[in-house]
Design a protein around this nucleic acid. Structure first.
Lengths: 330, 330
DNA sequence: ACACAAAATGAATACGTAACCATTTTTAAG
DNA sequence: CTTAAAAATGGTTACGTATTCATTTTGTGT
């Protein structure tokens, strides 16, 4: 492998000068610069990023710990994050985390001294939070947040849950179910609490068996669906903890020959890009802002990395209902 | 930052021994090992990946140059690639490439001495091919391939185009359009050629104005759609170069109050996961195999990296039609 | 108790770059 | 011209690890 020393020898200068040509070309005289450039070109020299990272203690790399792409929310955010970071000169190490690989994902991110970590997968009382803070690695969470209530970008999840229930109630539904994710993640927890609050405010009776806070895997959602439709008093509306859950339920409904929204109204939360599609037209609750959470988070993270600003990031975006075709009057 | 030297001092051993504890623990006596482990733990030591990469000339990193995720094909492949590579102990640098950032994407991949490159975005006569080969960096292309016809995993694109036209013809359609991508990528080129061949074999007349080989951006596809429906003799069927194009067209059709498949039959190619969804049920042509191309490619790449096997990879998967609900008899 | 092999440990070095400090060359002022 | 300041360049070192080779310690058979 050709190194800067090889280039130096070839050009008849010192390795230091080669380094300068690459990093502060304005400090080297024109003829020397040309000579070195020519050698770089002829030898096909490309500087070794690891050596550079080692000495500079800067990697230009960001670790992204994302949820799985079969959830379209993460399709939108991953796209925004990778593209923005790439544009700003950072490489992005992506991992799709689940319960199993989470600790290892943290470890590799830290071992490679990434300049920052952006993660959606944090649990409410995840120990990684303090670890990252103590190691002084800039990080931010999007979608979910930690109980410490610092360094996050989220939507107003309580309000989102509230509005989704309110939407169904105002359409005249009385038997309303909830299918959300595990309550150990802030997002689902707050959305559920908002849902409960609306049900209480509007005095809609709610029984235990209409509530599912389950794993978000396809099988588990489908299992919840089948339990719901086997109830003697079948719900006419389902509020869900996320668009991905809503889409899953709609798929299940179609397989059972139930029409959405004629037989069953379903509303999501997140307003993912896919929900706009003509074939889908999912009614959902989402951020008022045009930008998705991933974009806002990566912007903040790079700001933190480059300006070393320490002001704690706490962003909660307002939400509204996007009425489309998967809900209707009872 | 705590280094292996710090650990060594703390444990009262040499740095060499610390290194051994991490890499060949069976060669160090139990009491010493325990001592070192304890120090590692107490000091919260994590080895520096860059220093390791520098000395070993191995990075455990793979560069993934993927197409954009708004194309669901890349959702499937990216998921498979990242998950498999992560499981095998590799980190994955993801970039979503387009015409503009392609050269830079190549450069960063090489600068960081990745162990391998997996790319979908290669052009038929892309100079990167020879470059990677000369630099002896293991690489593989999926979906698309280079004119050199080496190191690729693809579906039988010609056959896919052929079958998609045949499907429409057998349904009785006579005015059939083609909307595909630019012909400088192997995939679209061969799919288009297959389409043409079927039209010729079955003696279906085909006029220039029913053919669009365009950029695959949303706007360009939509533009093609509007040109098609403004023809005096409107096509009753559209064969497309990819599922993403088909989904785009269906969205356009719905916006124009055209019913798919009643007014217009549309078929895709790729059989992406999303096409199964109850709301979508896209008729498409796809690989016979259960595994997606990304999975097959990353498997091959890691095999190349670890076994240094040089046998040239050339995999072409057979295809078949997956009949669903976006096509019907004329 | 001894010799000798085998096991365990340590010291020194290389990897490729940027940064620091020292030296040489050029430029500008008098 | 001379001289001092400024610009350009070079020599050396540090970054944190794995590896090579040398040295010490342990174990084994007689």
């Amino acid at each position: 492998m050709v190194s800067s020393k090889d280039v130096a020898k070839h050009a008849g200068v010192s390795q230091t000068t080669v380094s300068r040509v690459l990093n502060m070309p304005e400090t080297v005289k024109k003829p020397t610069l040309d000579k070195v450039m020519k050698s770089i070109d002829e030898l096909n020299y490309i500087p070794n990023g690891h050596a550079r990272s080692l000495v500079q203690n800067k990697t230009n790399t960001i670790a992204l710990l994302s949820g799985p792409l079969h959830n379209p929310f993460f399709v939108d955010t991953t796209t925004a994050i990778v593209n923005y970071a790439t544009e700003k000169g950072y490489r992005v190490n992506v991992q799709f985390v689940n319960d199993k690989n989470l600790p290892e994902a943290y470890a590799t991110a830290i071992a490679h001294k990434v300049d920052g970590v952006i993660l959606s997968c944090i649990l409410i009382d995840d120990p990684i939070f303090e670890k990252l803070k103590k190691m002084d690695i800039p990080f931010i969470t999007y979608n979910r947040k930690h109980k410490n209530n610092e360094y996050f970008v989220e939507i107003d999840n309580f309000q989102a849950g509230y509005l989704s229930a309110k939407h169904m109630i105002e359409l005249g539904h009385e038997v309303i179910a909830w299918v959300g994710g595990t309550l150990s993640v802030s997002t689902f927890n707050n959305r559920y609490l908002g849902f409960l609050q609306a049900m209480e405010d509007y005095k809609i009776p709610l029984k235990e068996k209409y509530i599912f806070n389950t794993d978000t895997s396809k099988q588990d959602i489908t299992r919840a669906f089948h339990e719901l439709i086997q109830l003697k008093k079948r719900p006419t509306a389902i509020c869900t903890g996320a668009d991905s859950i809503a889409l899953n339920l709609i798929d299940d409904a179609i397989k059972e020959n139930l029409k959405v929204p004629d037989d069953l109204s379903i509303i999501g939360i997140d307003n993912v890009d896919l929900s706009h599609h003509g074939l889908i037209q999912l009614t959902t609750v989402g951020s008022i802002s045009e930008q998705n959470l991933g974009f806002m988070a990566i912007q903040q993270l790079i700001e933190m990395i480059e300006n070393k600003k320490n002001s704690c990031i706490q962003i909660t975006e307002s939400v509204k209902v996007f009425g489309r075709n998967t809900t209707r009057k009872k």
